[in-house]
């Protein structure tokens, strides 16, 4: 099904069936932003020790799942993720990292796993995502027309200019990107607190999900809240990859190399 992209060992999926290499201290599952694939996390493993195997979560509609339609509803997205993660959650400590749309998916998935009596993640890292219930600061992107959407993506530095300028490729990828944006923008957050520590990461220059909007995450955990900011915009995880991974590694105790 290609849901998992295990960067801690490519042949390991068949061995333990959970996208990892076996014994690990904390497995880190990484959920991408709208339109994103797992490749954005490929470089993380080389910065982390093998005690923190990195596993990218590949949503339908991209990479090896290109031919599957992207999720158009929260119900189907969470049904897929809950079914895949329920058995894994009982196999050892794990943590979630999600950026923007990915943070929302990780948060909702954590609620469902907890509600089902599963072992919760050791840590929920929410990156570039306003706290549940905070109103958006910008109009929805998923309903913008093509030129307006591309202008917005260009301004946010969310898609490389070479890709935005490549009409055939954009024609191919835009439907998936719009589905992802619609999912992100129709998020109806599950209320309440998780029995999971929350680490919020934000970009100093992010006007989509700024620091003050991310402080609200403190009301969604019983187990402690921390926030870090990085000198960049909404996509700071690409520009500040080393610093981002270091902050996460420090919390997970696996160390960096």
């Amino acid at each position: 099904m290609h849901l998992f992209a295990p960067f801690g060992g490519a042949t390991a999926v068949s061995r333990d069936g959970r996208g990892g290499t076996g014994a690990a201290d904390v497995r880190l599952y990484c959920f991408p932003y709208a339109g994103g694939g797992t490749q954005v996390f490929r470089g993380w493993q080389s910065r982390l020790t093998s005690r923190v195997p990195v596993v990218g979560v590949r949503l339908p509609g991209r990479e090896q799942r290109f031919r599957e339609p992207a999720h158009t509803s929260w119900d189907t997205a969470l049904a897929e993720l809950t079914a895949a993660f329920a058995p894994l959650s009982d196999q050892g400590p794990y943590a979630f990292f999600g950026h923007s749309l990915g943070a929302r998916l990780a948060y909702e998935l954590a609620h469902r796993l907890v509600d089902d009596g599963r072992r919760p993640p050791e840590l929920l890292v929410v990156s570039a995502c306003r706290g549940p219930g905070r109103p958006p600061r910008h109009p929805d992107m998923h309903s913008l027309d093509g030129p307006a959407l591309r202008a917005r993506l260009r301004a946010m530095n969310g898609v490389p200019p070479e890709v935005l300028d490549n009409q055939p490729l954009m024609d191919l990828l835009e439907p998936m990107l719009r589905s992802d944006l619609r999912l992100a923008e129709t998020w109806r957050p599950t209320p309440g607190r998780l029995p999971v520590p929350v680490l919020a990461l934000c970009g100093d220059h992010d006007d989509v999900d700024p620091y003050e909007d991310m402080l609200d995450w403190q009301h969604h955990t019983w187990k402690g809240f921390a926030i870090h900011s990085f000198p960049a915009g909404h996509f700071f995880l690409r520009e500040q990859e080393g610093a981002v991974v270091e902050v996460i590694a420090e919390r997970l105790g696996g160390g960096t190399r």
């Binding site: 694939g37 954005v40 990479e63 490389p160 490729l169 990828l173």
Partner: peptide
């Protein structure tokens, strides 16, 4: 597989 090797939209171009 192009994507298993690390391909993305930029490398595709």
């Amino acid at each position: 597989n192009f994507f298993a090797l690390g391909g993305n939209s930029l490398t595709a171009i």
